[in-house]
Design a protein around this nucleic acid. Sequence first.
DNA 1: CAGAATCCTCTACGATACTG
DNA 2: CAGTATCGTAGAGGATTCTG
Lengths: 131, 131
Amino acid sequence: MDAKMTFSAQLRMVVDNGSLENCPVRQVMQGIFGKWSTLLLLALAEKPYRFGELRRLVPDISQRMLTQTLRDLERDGYVYREVYPTKPPSVEYGLTELGYSMLKPLTGLVEWASGNFEAVKEARDKFDRAG
Amino acid sequence: MDAKMTFSAQLRMVVDNGSLENCPVRQVMQGIFGKWSTLLLLALAEKPYRFGELRRLVPDISQRMLTQTLRDLERDGYVYREVYPTKPPSVEYGLTELGYSMLKPLTGLVEWASGNFEAVKEARDKFDRAG
DNA sequence: CAGAATCCTCTACGATACTG
DNA sequence: CAGTATCGTAGAGGATTCTG
């Protein structure tokens, strides 16, 4: 894909393709924008982790959402799942090549948010004060 | 913010800060990841538009969500809102400096999605076939 | 034209309990 | 240890109607 495409060309990529429900770009974005997806991808970017380790790394995720988000990330090809037949079983999760590839632009956004959240907060406060 | 921070440092930025509800980085990301936010930001990146023009550009957005999403983007400081006292009134929306600044990393993600949605689709199909 | 108000649906997410 | 299964809730989003 041409990295120099114009904004309007990008907009068309996202708006068109029939109905929005079927737009592939939107479908990909939806998979990344869940409440826990970014967090887990960042965690796995460091090194592979086991299920229980991820729970401890992200303390307020529920067990249900950890399972489900990992499944979704695995389904989209960002994360692999490796089961070791020990007793009790241990399962390792890690990023795939596609996952690392996607993480680069995602990290750009995280870094922007880290560097600019104060400006956003100020804008919010100002907007709320203006009533 | 140091652009060279490690992934674990980024993770801590997102995980820590007390409870996740209060994490400023997450709050910023949430504002960008809505169903319509990215679409509207891309549209406004080209040039300022009026309310009705945006409706036509993004046909399947409901009037309610267009209003609300524009309000949210304005509140976070990404979008300005300019009212012209004509009859009937016309309202122009456009990106602020902060909006353009944020759009750069966001565009990186959109371009990644545009270039890789087929790989994601293949991963999904393979996963679903495996049952 | 650019919205506000109202009502409704759907699903993402959480809490809890149970299992190979 | 690494999950399933079930139930319940809050909020995002949609459809419709009304207005300065």
